[in-house]
Amino acid sequence: MEDDVKKFLYVNRKAPYGTIYALEALEVVLIGAAFDQDVSLAFLDDGVFQLTKSQDTKEIGVKNFSPTFRALGDYEVTKLYVEKESLDERGLTADDLQEIMWEDEDDDWAEKPSIRIVSRAEMADVFADQDVILSF
């Protein structure tokens, strides 16, 4: 079976509420998680805005889906690559992002961080390492 596992990367480049892309990507990730593939998510350009803390959409009448990123660990999606240059250009640091953890069943349910801050060059390597890339 191990041979059938492919590396899937979902690329997120859009801010969360101005368009439907970000929410659609998240739904596809959750549904796709049932297929037991090796899934990673990449956040670059305006996509890094999806992961920011303290989003409160009460007054704009759309659903705040940012808490759902914290459920990804339950779906065995534990690799969220975030590009440092994209954060820098937007005046953000890792501290502006939500804490997203996953529980490692093989390590006595130890909590481990899902977000990995990478450079633009490292992000290019992440892309080059995939079997399938899905862009949103």
Partner: peptide
């Protein structure tokens, strides 16, 4: 409780794993 925290209903295998725990 899961919906309140994550804004989604969990998939069935996620539910079963959590109930087991």
């Amino acid at each position: 409780d899961y919906y309140e925290e994550y804004q989604i209903a969990p998939a069935v295998r996620v539910l079963i794993k959590a109930i087991k725990k």
